[in-house]
Design a binder for these strands. Structure first.
Lengths: 169, 169
DNA sequence: TCCAAACCCTTGGATGTCCTAGTATATTGC
DNA sequence: GCAATATACTAGGACATCCAAGGGTTTGGA
């Protein structure tokens, strides 16, 4: 995690796969491993930018989601579905955001089972600042070319749809 | 996290970005978010396949790495570098693999600071079986077309090199 | 009407990742 | 040769994710 390696470890793995007679799946293995590693790198960049705001990516995502909701509030189960994470992960994030006074829980007006999460003024303000920082420091410097970005969006979009994330077209 | 959403939440986020005047970084934002989500889906598939073997992806990666080492043994710091994870993560994985008798720690013959991780016969055997399962159930059914796989390997390879993972090429 | 099934959120537990520190061993430089 | 610096691993803590289970609320069919 400090010094660069002399050779690409994923390319090495791919060669090992081929050498062992698994050439038919060596390339997909390499692509999948590369996705895993890329996610790790991106997450680290994002967390670095968010740290000064006292946010993690999980908490930021929730704030951002709420900031786009008309009323600034969403049921927890809705947030869980849109963020595509387990309900307990949302509970966890809300607990911490609530402790920081960035969101507040409130009972659903008609359904006693449901809890609404609501942005506070501080939460809305912080979301805006954090988004500006991420846009400038991460999304604006992704290192991907425009064509590559389009390709990634298309290929990964198909993948996610096939995986059952959504039925959109 | 069961039912598919009616619409792609990442495409929605991209539209929200554009609507708020951040159109210049909306596409990279969407691409990066898609990578994060894709990683999550792939990891879940991998963990599902590995569960019957009593392995997690982190532990499997270490076993696979060792199985490709000539002697079946590697220093922990080497494993950390090749897997590109923090040294404490390797300690964690080795602790559990050792408890399962899949690897063993042994002192480095000449450097007293270094600990070697060594595959046991059980570990080597399990690695082989787990790899076969992953090849059949995940890598062989990635859902990515051949051209997309090549593109991913190339684009993400460049990204990882630029990020400082390796100096190859 | 009323009870079982479905749904929503939370608690508790297992894992993994990283960071910060601390201990032990090597290397370096004066 | 010895002290200062660097390297290797581990311990403890903060977070995130998921699963399994439990308690409260709604819904729906007998």
């Amino acid at each position: 995690m400090g010094t660069p390696l002399p050779r690409d470890p994923i390319a090495d793995a791919q060669r090992n796969w081929e050498r062992h007679g698994w050439g038919d799946v060596a390339a997909p293995m390499a692509a999948i491993t590369a996705i895993m590693r890329t996610q790790q790198i991106l997450l680290a960049r994002i967390e670095t930018v968010l740290k000064p705001f006292g946010l993690t990516f999980a908490r930021y995502e929730l704030l951002a989601l709420l900031s786009f909701a008309r009323s600034g509030a969403l049921p927890m189960n809705k947030a869980s579905a849109l963020l595509q994470v387990h309900p307990t992960s949302v509970t966890n994030a809300v607990d911490r955001l609530e402790k920081a006074a960035l969101v507040a829980r409130s009972p659903h007006p008609t359904d006693g089972r449901t809890t609404l999460i609501e942005l506070t003024a501080d939460g809305r303000s912080l979301a805006k600042k954090a988004t500006a920082a991420l846009n400038a420091e991460v999304f604006g410097k992704s290192g991907f070319g425009d064509d590559d970005v389009d390709h990634l969006i298309r290929v990964l979009g198909t993948f996610r749809r096939d995986a059952g994330d959504f039925t959109d077209e």
